[in-house]
Design a protein around this nucleic acid. Sequence first.
DNA 1: CAGTTATATAAGTAAATAGTTATATTAGTG
DNA 2: CACTAATATAACTATTTACTTATATAACTG
Lengths: 104, 104
Amino acid sequence: MPTIDEVSDSLKLLSDKTRLTIMALLRHKEMCVCDIVDLLNTTQPNISQHLKKLRTGGLINETRRSQWIYYSLNVDDKPYLKQVIDQLPSMQDQINELKSQGCN
Amino acid sequence: MPTIDEVSDSLKLLSDKTRLTIMALLRHKEMCVCDIVDLLNTTQPNISQHLKKLRTGGLINETRRSQWIYYSLNVDDKPYLKQVIDQLPSMQDQINELKSQGCN
DNA sequence: CAGTTATATAAGTAAATAGTTATATTAGTG
DNA sequence: CACTAATATAACTATTTACTTATATAACTG
């Protein structure tokens, strides 16, 4: 059973619109920073900072593959977040739109 | 399917420690303001303001019974919050402790 | 190694937010 | 109606937070 502090910390991370959208994106597949920057309408440092918070908070994983750093969901150990994340709206359309271009 | 904005607004309400604790309390039973003030360690105006936010955000109901205003959970229309709220730690011990005194 | 791409970090700013103290409102009671 | 109890509102303050711009780091490429 998680503590109130644990839950509120996790929810604080998810309660920001930009970060929640990132989570909704990563639900589909792992992505590198430039993918996310292209999909959300904001700057690279902004995304980098949000990713760092999600990473530090233990909600996502980071793995470098040559020059790209890929981020992916890491919420299997937080069952109390499962339903919220599972029920985020699909971002498939936005992802498809981007596919024609691609940041790399 | 809720929108990102809906979800992030709800999560913002839940992400505050005081408000999340209030929700954890109301999971057990409806309570009036003075009950909550006694259980959490803070002031009456602080609780009143948090209750107002939860109320405006549609997460709790308010009903007056003579001089007391009782608050209760109102999350049945938000399935994406169910698991988070269901898995909040039990507050039964704290509630029992208070029962011996009672604010009214 | 010089240039370029991907990402992170730093520093600053404006806005949002939680909490406090003081006061208002509403209802019950003698 | 005066008094008290329960709750809400207002005004203020300190802190947090998201975002921006500028710069640093790291990896790849000719």
